[in-house]
Amino acid sequence: MSAQQAVQYVRKSDGGLVAFSEKKLLRSLTRSGATAETAGGIITSLRHKIYPGITTREIYDQAFGMLKDITRPAAARYHLKRAILELGPSGFPFEQFIGELFRRQGYQVQTNRIVGGRCVKHEVDVLATAGDDLHFIECKYHQAGITCDVKIALYVHARFQDIAHASDMKIAGKTVGWLITNTRFSSDALQFGKCAGLHLLSWDYPSGKGLKDIIDREQLYPVTCLTTLSHYEKSRLLHLNVVLCSDLLERPDVLKKAEVPQDKVGRVLEETGNLCNKRLRAGVH
């Protein structure tokens, strides 16, 4: 956008207005793996379609559609934030996904455990162990535009304090409390977490070590990223407890159980292999 062009304000998912930034869009596209040439071409195509008040969702949909026609692996990575939202409103698949993230990083993981506290029992979304340390993880799934606020952080911290002080939780190592959300934390929640020693993890927090960074670094993409699958097929896979794309490479037969047409299986596995930078298992066609 040249200096002479008027700034266009676009509407975010929370209803607020923000100045449209070509640099931010370029960064998102290239971060997904699109070449500078591809990203520049998409921005050029979009430039004359931006109008005052257009939603960020509309801009995303148009950019995603063009990127998908050029390179599906990059489109899948660009789709990551939406893919996390597609894990479902119940929050249960998100809990499974977080459990898998910790498991793939070397933790022993259990999900949906009932743990006795000093005062009452608590259901812990994810219980992860590393050496002698116990990590108690509360997962908060939100729709786009909803912030995880300080009231949630206070509530979660109180629960973990009750668990940590229970007589049956005396362990050799530490007890560590986590609050993880797919969206963002309010400034008060971040301040409280730092002060209280509650570990916080969100889409982009901590800086450079947020969910998006962990997923990209470890290539732990959810199946909802895949552009070759329909919404129904993704739902079927989640119902079958298949959360990560890498699971499809290890268990390709599950695609049949998810009712993915046979003539489509090869394309799904090819996209998955490209996304995860892995070769298909020998004998899988």
Rank of each mutant, 00 (worst) to 15 (best):
P252E: 06
L255N: 02
L229Y: 09
R103C: 04
P73G: 03
S28V: 02
D69T: 11
K209L: 14
Y107Q: 05
G88N: 08
R217L: 10
P261S: 06
Y221C: 04
Y232P: 00
A282L: 14
A153Q: 01
V126L: 03
E218D: 13
I114M: 10
D253Y: 14
K23Q: 13
I54Q: 02
A258F: 08
Y107H: 11
L127E: 11
K278P: 01
R251L: 07
I59N: 04
S28Q: 15
I43L: 11
S207C: 02
I42K: 00
R72K: 13
L280E: 04
I214C: 09
R77I: 05
L229V: 06
G117Y: 04
L67K: 07
K257I: 01
E123Q: 15
T71A: 13
D188E: 14
G173Q: 08
Q105S: 15
A74Y: 03
A158C: 02
H79Q: 12
A196Y: 01
V156H: 01
T44G: 11
F160I: 10
S235Q: 14
T30C: 07
R77K: 14
R281A: 09
Q105L: 13
S187N: 13
K49S: 08
G210S: 12
V120N: 13
P206K: 07
D149I: 10
A75R: 07
G91W: 09
V254M: 02
M66C: 01
I98Q: 05
L244R: 08
I180Y: 08
R279T: 09
L85R: 12
C148E: 07
K212R: 14
Q110V: 07
L179E: 05
D213C: 04
I43F: 03
S186L: 03
S167N: 10
V242L: 08
D216P: 03
R104C: 13
A39M: 00
T272A: 15
L280N: 02
R47W: 06
E138V: 06
G117I: 03
H199M: 10
C225L: 09
R184D: 08
E86T: 07
L200H: 01
A158N: 09
K170T: 13
K23H: 10
K278E: 12
V109A: 01
R279P: 00
R31F: 07
Q110H: 14
T38L: 07
E123I: 10
M66Y: 04
D125P: 02
T35M: 03
D216M: 05
G193H: 05
D253L: 13
I50W: 06
Y9E: 11
T175D: 06
G16W: 11
I163P: 00
V223L: 05
T129Y: 13
H135V: 00
R104V: 14
V18Q: 14
L154P: 00
K23V: 09
I43E: 01
E233P: 03
L200Y: 01
D61N: 15
K194Q: 11
R217G: 15
D204V: 02
I171W: 08
Y78E: 00
K23F: 08
V126Y: 05
V156T: 12
F92Y: 10
V260S: 10
G117P: 07
D125H: 08
Y141D: 02
Q219G: 03
T129G: 06
H122C: 03
